[in-house]
Design a protein around this nucleic acid. Structure first.
Length: 255
DNA sequence: AATCTAAGCAACCGCACGAGT
DNA sequence: CACTCGTGCGGTTGCTTAGAT
């Protein structure tokens, strides 16, 4: 029995979000919080599916998002974490407060991978490409004599598995230690940065938007920045619910 | 100026997982 | 235990922009 689709796609809007849609979503979430993503578009008056709203909020509208390009230091940390965690982007992103998994994944696919290739490192294995080729050659050679060595391989495989298990265990311990120390660091960062955070906003535009030159994406001046007038950017959802909805605390910052 | 190409990124899709029934 | 539902995640697509020719 197949699953039902996450939403009835008939009549739903797709593609880039307009400023108006962003406004509706942000206003709704800020005033009501998120109980159920599926209900959000209906209650907010949006012709989008819940998934799309969730994605837009997480990747773009969340008040605690950090905007701007990733620094070289952050890139290096991504490489280090990728070597340890692989393509677990959300896990990697959790080490970078204010960064999204999508952002890091995009960065990896568009820049970091190439950067590693350029310096001769395989982005998948994080080993030097030369070394990888060598080991592949060795594998081919060993395949040729596979039948002869079958008995040896069988007897060795168990000890290899034991070694691999021990390594995996050690790696997991290191990971936990690393994550624990990072949690502390992240907490300190959040405490230090969160209070004065201004969320830059860089919306995408629909065709209708592009008609109006004042909202052209090429016009830096027109790129609005949403910011809280009187509310800390980092606050719990239940605090949002207590706010007076007459006081519209998102405003468009003109530069 | 026009066209082509590559890079960057927002958004979509399908699957997996955990909670609830 | 089997199933549904909501959500999160990773892979992929397709649009926009910038740079090259």
């Amino acid at each position: 029995m197949g699953r039902q689709p996450c939403c009835d796609k008939v009549g739903l809007k797709r593609g880039p979000w307009t400023i108006e849609e962003d406004h509706k979503l942000v206003t709704f979430i800020v005033n009501n919080g998120i109980q159920c993503w599926r209900m959000v578009p209906k209650l907010a008056g949006l012709l989008r599916c819940g998934k799309s709203c969730r994605l837009r909020w997480i990747n773009y509208l969340r008040p605690d998002l950090k905007r701007g390009a990733l620094t070289e230091m952050e890139e290096n940390q991504i490489i280090e974490l990728h070597a340890r965690l692989g393509n677990r982007w959300s896990k990697i992103a959790s080490h970078f407060p204010g960064r999204t998994d999508n952002e890091i994944k995009n960065r990896w696919n568009t820049r970091i991978k190439k950067r590693l290739n350029l310096i001769g490192i395989d982005p998948v294995t994080h080993k030097s490409i030369e070394h990888k080729e060598k080991s592949e050659t060795n594998n081919m050679e060993s395949n040729n004599s596979q039948n002869e060595q079958e008995n040896i391989v069988i007897s060795r495989s168990e000890s290899d598995h034991q070694t691999a298990r021990a390594e995996a265990k050690e790696e997991r311990i290191n990971e936990v230690i690393y994550e624990t120390s990072n949690l502390t660091n992240n907490y300190e960062m959040l405490c230090g940065v969160g209070l004065n955070m201004v969320n830059c906003y860089s919306p995408t535009f629909s065709l209708e938007d592009s008609v109006n030159p004042s909202t052209s994406i090429q016009d830096d001046v027109a790129i609005p920045q949403w910011y809280f007038d009187s509310v800390d950017s980092v606050m719990p959802w239940n605090s949002f619910n207590q706010l007076d909805d007459k006081e519209f605390f998102f405003s468009e910052k003109r530069q």
